[in-house]
């Protein structure tokens, strides 16, 4: 991995009154890799993701994209440099339909500045069909769709535009087995296309299948950052729960390297 990083987060901090949600967290992300972000509920994962997405402003630290320091004032600033996010809450407007949600905030317009509904509908039909061939009820309000369909819209919105960095905050939480498989395949495909992907997940199985590296957070701090082949599931669980690796880890790892 001798390329330069897509994004560097350096000493990021976020406080809410006395709550230290994120404390001096640094994470790099390179093109063509999937980095798993793990940790208990409340560890600060979503806050960190929102900061990188421009949806939350940090109290301290620095974000570099392509080597250049950038301050995100709002989500559009992050999108402008190719950072797209699938939020844990999906962030869909319930009363609007799938095309309206897909293009929310960056609507396609006609020459006269009117909303170009036919073009948005057509584009939505295409991208949604690629993710889920059974997605036909495009004109229904998204509130009436299944959890899986809603998730598909949120995913489509994050990959439709010119994405370089994809943040996925628990993208399979609302999905059944076949849709989870679809997201996994998609993740690997996008990685192979050269995207950098941050995957927040609780599913150890997914993490070990998809990620090249794991970063574990505990109480707002990074307690471990490892290539996936130097840790076991038990090691990661220990990091999540106790905030440290098992005592025998370095010995085991040295042995493996020696072999």
């Amino acid at each position: 991995m001798n390329q330069s990083p897509l994004v560097e987060m350096i000493d990021i901090e976020k406080h809410f009154g006395g709550v230290r949600a994120v404390e001096k967290v640094s994470i790099d992300l390179y093109p063509g890799e999937v980095v798993g972000v793990l940790g208990h509920n409340g560890a600060g994962k979503s806050c960190l993701m929102k900061i990188l997405a421009g949806a939350m402003q940090p109290n301290g630290g620095e974000i570099r994209v392509g080597g250049r320091t950038i301050e995100f004032q709002e989500p559009n600033d992050a999108r402008a440099v190719g950072i797209e996010t699938i939020y844990q809450t999906l962030a869909l407007a319930d009363h609007l339909d799938a095309p309206a949600n897909l293009f929310l905030g960056r609507e396609l317009k006609t020459r006269f500045g009117n909303l170009d509904e036919p073009r948005m509908l057509e584009a939505a039909r295409k991208v949604l069909a690629r993710l889920n061939p059974n997605f036909t009820n495009l004109r229904d309000p998204v509130s009436s769709l299944s959890g899986g369909q809603r998730q598909v819209i949120a995913i489509a919105r994050a990959i439709y535009f010119d994405t370089k960095i994809l943040i996925m905050d628990e993208p399979t939480a609302a999905l059944g087995p076949s849709e989870t498989k679809m997201v996994a395949d998609l993740t690997l495909k996008l990685r192979d296309e050269g995207l950098g992907i941050l995957l927040v997940s609780h599913d150890m199985h997914d993490v070990f299948d998809l990620c090249d590296r794991v970063v574990v957070m505990n109480k707002g701090r990074v307690v471990g950052s490892h290539a996936i082949d130097e840790v076991t599931k038990d090691d990661v669980l220990s990091l999540i729960i106790k905030g440290e690796l098992p005592a025998d880890w370095s010995a085991r790892n040295l042995l493996e390297r020696a072999e």
Binding site: N76, R79, Y87, T89, A91, A93, A100, G105
Partner: peptide, 14 residues
Amino acid sequence: YATGSNEEAARLSG
């Protein structure tokens, strides 16, 4: 419409 439907979602959507 989006703001009234879900303000936080609208904000996150840009």
